[in-house]
Amino acid sequence: MPYFRITLLRSSIGLPRKTTATLHALGLRKRMATKYLPITPSIAGQIMRIKELVDVKEVDEAMTKQQIRDARRPDPGFYVEKRATTGMMV
């Protein structure tokens, strides 16, 4: 199922209350917040109202919060070849 991936790039400070309310309704609370919402005319209409503030992409799958966090995590720079055996300590 395709989704809109909406990222809030610009804040709504000082803009009309309807703009802020739309962001609130979409669940975009702070800048760089990302939401995956289904592609419906109602969501599209809300995006139209805040089009100057957001980045919108059409994606096939929605990412969960954990997946977004994992995607942002930088490469640790090492990998574990072998764990020390716990049997040694007994």
Partner: peptide, 19 residues
């Protein structure tokens, strides 16, 4: 943003007056 909305809705077989 407008073109994304338009293509995404068109793929669903929908249009929107505002767009």
């Amino acid at each position: 943003v407008i073109s994304t909305l338009d293509t995404a809705l068109a793929r669903q077989g929908q249009t929107m007056k505002k767009v």
